[in-house]
Design a protein around this nucleic acid. Structure first.
Lengths: 226, 226
DNA sequence: GCAAAAGTGTTTGCCATACACCCATGT
DNA sequence: ACATGGGTGTATGGCAAACACTTTTGC
């Protein structure tokens, strides 16, 4: 029996805006839609929410199924509910964005779906309102990365300042002064210098850093002025 | 016929976090739930999304039905989709927050629902996850008000600097230096000084200001450091 | 006259930006 | 030797915060 009789029910899906970082470029995982309608068109990873899961759980499931990864950074962007956003049938979609380490993903699994990493600066045409979902996600990513070191989710666990800076340059599509960037990040007090050096990307070699383990407090200082 | 066979459909509702401002306090419109289950418990204004409307349209409809107002500031907060958030039946809810001018609302209509304005600092116990919805909305309101003059949606069209400052003090639960606040806001260049004075709230009398008409550009400068 | 808000000016310290400069090393 | 990134230091300008001070007027 139901308390809420006579109310319309809806299909609810999740769509995942999956960010990765590779070759100094911010990239997005996009795949050719596997079912009709518009089968084959480029689309975000998505799936329908099932009876016994929350939208967030559905998003985690989709990510697991498509990248092989669990335990990844995931955050809701917004619900999209326009009556004609899917021109074939009414579907309400909850959008999440995820940050993953490309080289840790299951590349075979990704390939098996025909998925491809596209630089965010040159995405193909996407179905429905997926382009808008991407843009909203980019905005949120910039906001988040600007007030906490969220971006490190896209790098290896250890990284040099140059790698971190290039990542931020990719996220914000602008350059940062190397010296100032280093000082700003160090002043946050969330990085730990390792004994190890990276000698492959510069002649002098740069020390690796990592996030201090067991950091519970979110950094709320401003990294990038927006 | 349907493209997406065999997928579960869900009840989808909207819940509205309705902010108002009165007696130098930020207030929230909360009403006793009109139907079972937990009929009579304090709840946000809400309603089910109908077949031919988006969630946003549903939220506008709910606001119109309960406050008599259209053309109000409305913005999505998030979708809430936990499987047990409504302990009686699975409902996915999209939450919006609204800013309204209390004295322009239809007070009779509001009363007819038994609704009541509560100071945000002393809310009653709310059903389900509505408390969390309020907290998320407060955070977003603070963020938004800190980077644009969004707060003026809560005041009359013309207002004095003291009124604006008291509003911001209510939103951020802290005090602002009157002189610095005035200079900061004026530097945004979005206010227009009127010839009229308010003499009821101070002995000297303070000039009224209003938002410059036809302001299309959002103020993106920082008003309050968060 | 006093209190209280209106409105303006001043001082201080912090911080972002720009940029100079030395270091270490692979070629 | 030199080019390149690593890393540190310094000068400058803008802005936020603290606060002093004058103005106006109701009581």
């Amino acid at each position: 029996m139901s308390y809420y009789e006579n109310q319309t029910k809806f299909l609810v899906s999740v769509d995942c805006v999956i960010f990765g970082y590779e070759e100094e470029q911010l990239k997005l995982l996009v795949y050719p839609r596997a079912f009709e309608p518009v089968k084959g068109s480029w689309s975000l990873m998505g799936g329908f929410v099932k009876q016994l899961e929350s939208a967030e759980e559905a998003a985690y499931r989709v990510l697991q199924e498509t990248t092989g990864l669990s335990n990844i950074f995931l955050e809701q962007v917004s619900a999209f509910s326009g009556t004609t956003r899917d021109p074939f049938e009414r579907v309400i979609s909850v959008v999440y964005f995820a940050l993953i380490r490309i080289n840790q993903s299951d590349e075979e699994l990704i390939k098996s779906h025909g998925a491809k990493w596209w630089p965010v600066t040159s995405l193909p045409k996407l179905i429905f309102d997926h382009r808008e979902m991407v843009e909203r996600s980019m905005n949120i990513l910039q906001q988040k990365a600007g007030s906490s070191l969220i971006g490190t989710e896209l790098l290896q666990k250890k990284f040099t300042f140059m790698q971190l800076r290039k990542l931020y340059e990719a996220i914000y599509q602008r350059e940062f002064d190397p010296g100032n960037f280093r000082k700003k990040i160090l002043s946050l007090g969330v990085l730990e210098k390792l004994d190890q050096k990276n000698s492959t990307e510069s002649k002098k070699g740069a020390y690796y850093y990592r996030l201090k383990p067991n950091l519970q407090v979110e950094v709320l200082d401003r990294i990038v002025k927006i």
